[in-house]
Simulated scan of single mutants.
Amino acid sequence: MMLTLENLINEYAALETEIRKIMTHLFSGTCGLCTACCCRADICEEAVESAFLARLLKKQGLGEKDMDDRFGWLDLSGCSLDYGRPPVCYAYYCDELLARLPDDTHRYSAGVLGKLILHIGQQALGNRHLVEIMDPDDLEKINYDRVFQRLEEAQAAFEVIKAYLASGMLNKADREVLAVITTEEP
């Protein structure tokens, strides 16, 4: 596969869509129109301010005009975006969400699931995360080798998490795949 921005956008969107489906399955009963902590319009604004996330919104036919001033992208079932959410939307778990999970292994796997999007964009351009790039011209300057490597790591971890959620089993090799996501570079 060619390491291009368009390929990155397509691969990223596909993975984020799959992550969203699992998150929705796990937590939709809690997250719909919850504005207690994290789901606020000011956080949603990152999706239109970030050059990369704005490209993902455009791919869906969305833009700033489509975001609600009060609730951002939030609706009765949670976030209405298929992809293009700020990474914090996946990485943050309130106590109520964590309490829905049956044990520490489920909480660990959900924690890794929440870090996959964050992992992909780390150090995409120098020390900047992919979503911290505000100038669209800078998207052509990102370290494609690094971002695609991290995308592949996230995809591998996602497959492990899916298998774990289906089987309830997480072996040593699976944990090593997941550890790549939780062990960040300095």
Rank of each mutant, 00 (worst) to 15 (best):
Y90L: 00
L98M: 14
G126Y: 10
D82A: 14
V131M: 05
L57W: 03
K65N: 13
G126W: 08
R128L: 15
Y93A: 13
R150F: 01
L57E: 06
Q60V: 14
Y90Q: 02
P86V: 02
V88G: 05
C79I: 03
P102A: 12
R107A: 09
A99Y: 06
L151P: 12
D145W: 02
E153R: 05
I142G: 12
F52H: 04
V131G: 00
K115E: 12
V88C: 10
Y108H: 08
C89S: 04
H129A: 08
G72Y: 04
R70P: 00
R146I: 10
L56S: 07
G72C: 06
V147E: 11
K59M: 15
G78I: 01
D104C: 00
N127V: 06
A154Q: 06
S80N: 06
V147P: 07
V147L: 10
N143Q: 08
F148P: 11
Q60L: 10
Y144M: 15
L98S: 04
L125N: 04
D82V: 09
P86Q: 03
D82Y: 00
P86D: 04
P87T: 02
D135I: 07
R55S: 10
E140T: 09
L57P: 02
Y83I: 05
L97H: 09
C94L: 02
G61A: 08
L113T: 01
W73L: 07
L98A: 13
H106P: 02
C89P: 02
A99M: 09
Q122I: 11
F148K: 10
A91F: 12
Y83F: 15
R100F: 00
R55M: 14
G121T: 08
R128Q: 13
Q60T: 13
L101V: 11
A124P: 03
